[in-house]
Design a protein around this nucleic acid. Sequence first.
RNA 1: GCCUUGGUGGUGGAAUGGUAGACACGAGGGACUUAAAAUCCCUUGGGCAUCGCGCCCGUGCGGGUUCAAGUCCCGCCCGAGGUACCA
Length: 919
Amino acid sequence: MDYNFREVEKRWQKEWRDQNIYHVTEDAGKPKFYVLDMFPYPSGAGLHVGHPLGYIASDIYARYKRQKGFNVLHPMGYDAFGLPAEQYAIQTGQHPAVTTRQNIARYREQLDKIGFSFDWDREVRTADPKYYKWTQWVFIRLFNHYYDQELDKARPISELVAKFTANGTAGVRAAETKPLEFTAAEWNAMSEKEQQETLLNYRLAYIADTWVNWCPKLGTVLANDEVVNGLSERGGFPVERKLMKQWILRVSAYAERLLKGLETLEWSDSIKEIQRNWIGRSEGAFIRFPIENNENTLDIFTTRPDTIFGVSFMVMCPEHALIEQITTPDQKAEVDKYVTWARNRSETERQTDVKKVSGVFTGAYAINPFTKERIPIWVAEYVLAGYGTGGIMAVPAHDSRDYAFAKHFNLPIREVIAGGDIEKEAFETKDGIVVNSDFINGMKVKEAGKCIIEKVKEMGIGYGTVNYRLRDAIFSRQRYWGEPFPVYYKDGVPYMLPEEELPLLLPEIDEYKPTETGEPPLARAANWTYKGYPLEYSTMPGFAGSSGYYLRYMDPHNDNEFISKEKNEYWQDVDLYVGGSEHATGHLIYSRFWNKFLYDLGIVCKDEPYKKLINQGMIQGRTNFVYRINGTNKFVSLNLRDGYETTPIRVDVNIVHNDVLDIDAFKAWRPEYADAEFVLEDDRYVCGWEIEKMSKSKYNVQNPDDLVERYGADTLRLYEMFLGPIELSKPWDTNGIEGVFRFMKKFWKLFHDGSNEFCVTDDEPTRDEYKSLHKAIKKVEEDNERFSFNTAVSAFMIAVNELTDLKCHKRKIVEPLAVLLSAYAPHVAEELWHLLGNTGSVVDAAFPKFDASYLVESSANYPVSFNGKVRLQRVFPADMQPKEIEAALFADPDVQKYLDGKQPKKVIIVPKKIVNIVC
RNA sequence: GCCUUGGUGGUGGAAUGGUAGACACGAGGGACUUAAAAUCCCUUGGGCAUCGCGCCCGUGCGGGUUCAAGUCCCGCCCGAGGUACCA
C-alpha cells in the first residue's frame, strides 16, 4: 500500500507524546482561546461512538485557532464519580476506584488513537482527592453565603447574622426557603441551635426536609433532571416521592440571572429555549385569601389576577401544611384518606394518569377579598407542592385544569372574560375583555390584572410578583461513589469542616450497599466522625464535580487555591464548548449557577462560563436486517421478498458492507446459521436497514477502534466530519468512508510519484494550480469559522481532484495544502510536513494566507435570463461595467431573437452573477 | 397542548434571494488485469425528444412578495428534540 497510515499515525502519535507538543502555558504575548469538550464519564463499554464526533470537531477548531496565532487551551479529563461503577462494585465487590481507573485507561487509549491535541498535563478527574478537595471547598462557600436580593449577589452569611442581630428580618431581602419574620430581640434570644436552624432558611447550600424523587432500586434520591417520565435516567427504574432530609442548593436564587445571562451567549436558540422553559419565569400576583373562622390565610400565586371575580373554588396541594388546621371534622376522614393516598403515590404513577381528576373537599371556605363570597377549599393532586405557594384560586371558566375539575365535581363555572364558549371548554385567552367583574369590567386582561394587583397591594393582602419553575437542586445522594460532604453534626445541626481538613477523603468500606437500617453506605465506614461528631453519610451528586471543572483546567496543579487569580484572568472563560444537548437542563444550568456564585465571590472574572456552545448531534444506530423465510433457514435478499412470508432479523453491522451481507461471516456468526441458505439478487445478499438507537442488543454498534484499524485515524476524523453538519443528528453509517479513504490516498499521491517515492518540485505553479489552492484556503477558512466542517472536507476533495488532474507536485501548492489539512488529518499532514524538510510540528505552522488575486477572473460568465428564465450564456470581461454589458447584449442577435421585437421594460445586471431582462 | 427545529435525488448532504442537487456513497456502463484487489474514464432528479438540437416539470402542500424564491411572508401537513396538571 502506498499510503501507510498505520506506520505514519503510530510514528507521530509517539513523537507528539515524546515532545509534549500539545502542552500549553500562559503566554501574555498571544491572545488566548479556550476550546473545551464535555468530559466523558468513563463507562465500562469504552468510548461510545457519539463522543468522537464532538471531540474531532473541537480538535479541528483548536488546531485551526492555534495556526491562526492563538494560544489554545484544549484539555480533557474524566467525570469519574458515578452510578455504574458503584453498581458494579455492589455486584462484584470491586472498588469503584479500581474499575474507574481501568476504564479511564481504556478511554485514554482510544482517545490517543484518534490523534487529539489535548494537553494531558492538565487532565482532571473528579474522583481524585486533589480535585474533589475543591468541590468540597466550593460547597463550604455555598453554605457560608446567602443571596442578597437587594445587591443581587451572594454575600457572606455573617452579614446576614449581623443584620439579624441589629434589626431582625426588618429590611432584609434574601432568597429564602419560606418567609420568616422575627425581631432582633427574638433573634438574640434564640439558642445556637435555633439560630443555626434559622440560617438554613437562607444559606445557598442548606439541609431541609423535602419531598424528593426517591429511587428505591438505586437506593438514592435524584434531581429533577435525572428523572425522565417518572423513571430514573440511569437504569430506567421507578421513582417514588418521599419526605427526606436532604442537602439542597439554592439554585432558584439565581433564576433571574440564569435567564438574563442567556441573552449574552452564543448558544443555539433551541438550547436557550430549553433553559428558558426550565427556568419558567412567570409574572403574576401573590394574594392572601382569608379563611372563614380561621386566622390563617390561604396564599396563592396566580398569573391571572384579572380573573379573580371568576374564582369558584380554591385548591391546595396534598402536602399543604394548612390542611390539618382547616379541615372540618365531618370531612376529616375523607381528606385524610385522600391526602395519605396522594402523598404516597409515586412520581411514576402520577405521571401516567395526569389527566385523571381527583380531589376532596375540606369543608372549609375561603373568602373572596373582592366579592366577599364563600369559596370552598379543596385538596387535589393537580396542584403541585413545589411550585408557587402550593395553593391556587381556581377559575374554571378560563383554565382548562380547573375546568376539568369543576366539571367532574360539579362546581360552578363563571365567565369573566368575554368571547369564549364556556359550556364547551375553558377559554384561556390572554387578551380579551373582562366581564362580570365589578370595577374592572370592560378592561383588557392585562390592564385588569395590573388594576387588581394595585388593589390587593392597597388592601395589604398581596402584591405583584414573579415565580420560577426552576427548583432548588437536591444535592445529596445516598451512595458511596461521590464526593463526601465536608459536614459534621453537632446537636443535630450541620457544621462545615475547617478548610485545612480538606479534602475529606472517601473512606474505605467493606460493602457498597446501604446498611440494614437503610442508612447510606458511608454509615458502614469505621470511625466516620470528626472530633467525635458524626460526619454526613450521603455524598454529592454527579453534577457536583462537573460544575466547575472547566475552571480547574486553567490551573490544575494548584494545591493552595482552587484557581489562581492570574491564571483565571488569562484564560477567562470557555470560548467554545462542545457537547450534547442532553445536558441543557442539568449540567449546563448547574455549571452556570456554580460559576455565577464564584463570580459573586470574586473568585472568577466572568459571569458566564461558556461563551459559545455547539451541540453535536446524536449518533443513531443503523441496523441491518436479513429476511428469513418463515419456517425455514433460508434468507431472501431485500428486493426479492415479494411472494415470501419473511421475518426480519437484526444482523451484526460488522459483517455487512454497504448493505451487502458477508455470507461466510454470517454463517460463522451464529451456529444456527451455519447451514443457512440464501436467495440472492445479482449473486449478492442485500440487507435492509433501519435507523434505531445504537445498542448492543440491536447489533448496530460501530466501534471507532475498528475503523481506525482499517482506515486510519485521519480517515475516521475526516469521515466523521464529512457525514453532515456537526449539530445534526444522524445515523452512524460507514457506507461512504471509502470515498474519504480514496481522497486520502489521492492526497498522498500529490507528494509521491508512481513508485511511491517522495516527489515534490520547487517549480513555479501555474495560475490554475494557485487558483485551486486559494479556493480551498478561502473555503476552509470560512467553513472553519462557521463550524461547517463537512463542507470544508468537500473543499479539500475538490482541490485534490483538481490538482491531481493538473498533475501538480509543486511545493508552493502542496505544502500550504498540507498545513490547511493538518487540523483535519494531523498525522498525514505531519508526515508530509517533515518529508518536505520542515522541522518542528505542523501544528505550529501558520495558517496559509489567502490571496484573493488568484481567484480574480479575467472574464465572467453571465447567464442571461428573460423574465427570470435563463436562456443564454454570455461571457464578458470581469471588469466590464453594467452599462457596457447592456449595450453589448442588445447588439447580440440571439438576444434580439428572444426579445422578438419587444422593448425590454427593465434590465437587471448583478455583477458577475446574472443578467435578467424583463420584457 | 406549548416551545424549538427540520422537510431538497436511491442514500448522506451542497446552495450570501441570482443557472437547485456541489462533494461523496450507491447503482449502471467501460478501460487495465488470467483473475481479484487497487486505479482510471463515462452515465446517473423525473419526463418528452427522428435520445448530439432542444423543451417541460421538479426543493412536503396551498397561496403571496420579487425581474428572480429551496431561501423571504401568510396558512396548512408531516418528522425530530424539549417540555407538560408550573396556576
